[in-house]
Amino acid sequence: MNITELRDHLCEQHPDLCPLFSIEFGDGVLSVSCDKLYEAASGLRDLGFDRLGMATAVDRGETFEVVYRLTSRSMSVGIFLKCHVPRDAPKTNSLFPLWPAALWQEREIFDMFGIDFEGHPDMRRILLPDDWVGHPLRRDYTDDRMIRRPDYI
């Protein structure tokens, strides 16, 4: 199935999600607000997206963009699910009840960005030691032990 067929299929099954769908660089993107994230995700899962491939976040300044990449084995197509959480209160729903694959990936997001996932059973740091201060992948992260590479270009 290609991406336009996916759009038609999505609009047919979930008309409310249809206006949120866009195509970027050949990939389908579904941008929702974070309180609707869980419903949208469960809707997509019912549509046949059975794999949670990737979960990550991007620092967009005022907000953090939480990005999920879902893949459907039956349709051989992938889709992005995105939502923005505010930087001062980073909190959203966990997708662990839908895809257990989110267990470690959301822990990693918590570790790197400090985004709290509600409904996640085990919200601890995963890659860094438990006593680490700060969340390194935020753009404003500073660390005395970090040496910045000189700007040659």
Partner: peptide, 23 residues
């Protein structure tokens, strides 16, 4: 998988490696 976010500059804004071994 590799997920790259560009904000237009010569450096990527964010690079995420979706590693199979992690999952």
């Amino acid at each position: 998988g590799v997920y790259i976010v560009s904000e237009g500059g010569p450096r990527p804004h964010r690079v995420k490696f979706r590693s199979p071994a992690f999952c």
